[in-house]
Design a protein around this nucleic acid. Sequence first.
DNA 1: AAATGCTTTTGACCAGAATCAAGGATGCGA
DNA 2: TCGCATCCTTGATTCTGGTCAAAAGCATTT
Lengths: 248, 248
Amino acid sequence: MMSIFQNAAAQPVNHEQTALAPKIAEPASALCEHATPVRARRRQRLVLEHPPSETVYIVRSGLLGIEALPAGKHRQLLELFYPGDIIRRSQVPNLPGASLTALTLSEVWRLPAHSFEALLAASPEQNAQAQRRVAEQHARATLHASIVGTLNGDERFASLLVELGLRLGSIGPAGITVDVPLSRTDIADYLALNPDTLSRITSRFKARGLLTQFGGGHTLIPAWEALCASTPVAATLQTLHAPPAATA
Amino acid sequence: MMSIFQNAAAQPVNHEQTALAPKIAEPASALCEHATPVRARRRQRLVLEHPPSETVYIVRSGLLGIEALPAGKHRQLLELFYPGDIIRRSQVPNLPGASLTALTLSEVWRLPAHSFEALLAASPEQNAQAQRRVAEQHARATLHASIVGTLNGDERFASLLVELGLRLGSIGPAGITVDVPLSRTDIADYLALNPDTLSRITSRFKARGLLTQFGGGHTLIPAWEALCASTPVAATLQTLHAPPAATA
DNA sequence: AAATGCTTTTGACCAGAATCAAGGATGCGA
DNA sequence: TCGCATCCTTGATTCTGGTCAAAAGCATTT
């Protein structure tokens, strides 16, 4: 309880910093010379079904996700990627309809895997940094498996709100404001819930005062502490999604 | 050249090939000189709550998993690790009770992350191989999120059987034999199912002729094709769990 | 303003899995 | 051999969330 409150207080929700502070990108002069900048509009796919060779993507801005289209079922959003994340083609399981898709207007760097590896080989420090980054992404994927595996609908939704608040939120007078970049169906697909069920959950959250103004992507979280208390993984989300430079 | 990151003891079941040829010890690498060999008995934990520093584990033999103990809920088995897999401490989300646990008698190499990074920096080829390996593990984690997120109990169980068949199975006269190294509760925790529900599922599978002799860890899969048809992710499992060098 | 097409909400109903509880195996030690 | 403990099975019940359908917003078009 206390730690959650501290998390809320220490939360540095600083939009600009989150958006353009991928650690991997700072000494990336060599990287940006070899990478192809790609701008992707919402819903645009980056990983094709049969790519010619292993490719690495580095998120510069925006939000992307891995999606799959199981036969006869709803679309799944399996993972979210934020600026600084590293995605290579083989990280995406070849599920039917699997692709790396932009959820908002995004900028990524694309380069062949062998170029990426050659660049990392030239810089042990960047290499180590990339490894840490990939490990962190792996932890997020495992956490998501834990969330959709055992938590109920309310807890899942609260977990997503905490994640987005930590990543994209900014502190305002009445609480924490988040411009949620996901559509309603995106959220439902990410949480493995039905759109109908998600609607009921948001209604409950509004009734409980955990959420207001959920329209047009504008969301206000009036009671961050209460929201964190609604999910058992708030502390874990904090360690994985709060910017490391929070103390600055 | 055989790499340490490739399956040391993989037993591919490829329909045409009997799998009983464990690879001979691969060429000694600099890794084994700097790593501490660790032997873990079943249920032994390798990642402590507060480790002194970032640590890397490389699975040599056996089977390990990431487990978590959510407050007031059942244990979760979030991920399985096979020989050749690379696990670093930050890959494990700090969920309550999270740890890397041996599911069978296992051998791993343990070394500090900075040693691992230094060794990889000295060998670009091994570095690239490690990156590919980690990406593959990431794909497996994402696939597991997909499985527990949308498949029903029967499909989840079939998916696990396919995975274990590909990893550990051997072709016999009456079908594919698997010595399942997971206990009943392990399986339930991995599939995010209740032990009671799992019991019903196994009964159904036996009645449908998909499974026999499920006792004492000895399992026979008489109809591999029918089993694969019971899960929508059979093809994906094949690509992620069947060794690419299965034709050797 | 009326019409159209879309998403969201809400209600009624249903299915799958969890829970609880009672047997039935199985294994171990005295 | 008999307890004794543990795990597995099976049945009855509950509950969460999915499915289906209708109604309500909402925006754009005519």
